[in-house]
Design a protein around this nucleic acid. Structure first.
Lengths: 221, 221
DNA sequence: TTTGCTTTTACGGGTTCCCGTAAAAATGCC
DNA sequence: GGCATTTTTACGGGAACCCGTAAAAGCAAA
């Protein structure tokens, strides 16, 4: 089993639970931190001392508090860590998933495991750790289900721009101007309308309210 | 300290973390379950055997899975439990809060503590348990902050009906009819418009999309 | 019952949004 | 380059939504 493991997780209860899982798997004294910046420091120092970490388990979302952090979330943490220590294994253990970004990490070879916190989150985390130790990629079963549910539509950058503008309260009429300023194409009102209609059609929605709320629910915005 | 404590929490990791917190506080063998229905059974049986539970710690949201449950969530669980055992102490330990319903429970005397899962969730849970043991009411500090943030507006039943209809894709034009069928008053289009304007005004929104997304984010719908 | 106040409803004009069609531009292929 | 296909844009009529005003209904106290 892994010798040196680092946990980055802001919720104290989840952090403890992950520690226990690791000890249970034979990791003697997993190191745990509550901030991404701290995680990076420990990884840097471990490399400097010639005893680098074997595995990083991190949450994605870290709640902001008084302590200002350079690294805002687990995704950014993984990217930085993988730059300075490419061979380290990484697992994300997160509440709600954001499959698009997660998948990007997988494709980029930056990620070895992905587990969502749910009924059997701890159990799946164990499996992910063991899989990573055997150089296998792991995704918890619930994710595949989620991916299926929404397989119908791949959100493009353009889609996300429109949704985000809607969420910010910009009227459709004003959008072409905004998009042109940011040099996003297409930018015409017709294109925006057409794309919105397509998205609503895919999900069976009739109103933009539903679409925006749905994206918010999926944490796409 | 409490002798008999029951934990109802669907996420296995959180469940373990709560168990550890309890053991740490001197509760010898806390009972834990993953479903509300199971929780109610254990409480009933304990009463029957003349050794009722002293404290119930429960999550609010329980993810649906194959096993169909009569009691859908922690709020319903508390209501039922308090009917058959009014003197039991209750603490909710939950991810995102829904202050309106929680406050209703407090007012009804059904609740002794409320802690949100966050950075210091475990720490605050300890404090809540100790407070309950001393017959004090406890709310974790973050909640007051959340309450302040949205202090501006108390959502009425009417508000929630409108938002929910919007979320379901009903057009404003059709809403009066829906509301009349469900015997909700007021029901006129003007009243709906006026109320929507007021809500948007309070939050500084310009469009319904923002309002619905915001409510979705707060898990009010 | 009357009076005064609040809440609810009704209505109308102006704007935005929805939706279909058709022209223009971009893209790809030979 | 020339042609076919796809994408993007432009435009116009009709529906829904926004917003202000004013009438009607509900309600409390005298």
């Amino acid at each position: 089993m892994f010798k040196k493991v680092l946990i980055a997780e802001d919720h104290d209860t989840e952090n403890i639970a992950v520690q226990i899982t690791l000890r249970d798997l034979g990791v003697e004294s997993p190191k745990y931190v509550y901030y991404c910046d701290h995680a990076l420091n420990w990884i840097k120092n471990a490399i400097r001392d010639g005893e680098p970490y074997d595995l990083l388990i991190t949450d994605i979302e870290f709640e902001a508090d008084g302590n200002v952090q350079a690294i805002p979330d687990g995704l950014a943490l993984i990217k930085v860590v993988k730059e300075i220590q490419p061979e380290i294994k990484t697992i994300v253990f997160t509440g709600k998933d954001r499959s698009t970004t997660i998948n990007a990490l997988f494709k980029a070879g930056l990620l070895d495991g992905h587990v969502v916190k749910a009924r059997r989150g701890g159990q799946y985390l164990r499996e992910a750790i063991q899989a990573a130790y055997q150089n296998r990629i792991y995704q918890s079963p619930d994710i595949q289900k989620i991916a299926q549910e929404r397989n119908s539509h791949e959100f493009t950058q353009f889609d996300m721009h429109i949704i985000r503008l809607l969420y910010e309260g910009i009227s459709q009429k004003e959008m072409p101007e905004y998009l042109r300023q940011r040099e996003i194409r297409p930018s015409s009102l017709s294109s925006i309308e057409k794309r919105l209609n397509l998205m609503k059609d895919v999900f069976g929605f009739t109103k933009n309210e539903q679409l925006v709320a749905h994206c918010k629910e999926l944490k796409l915005i």
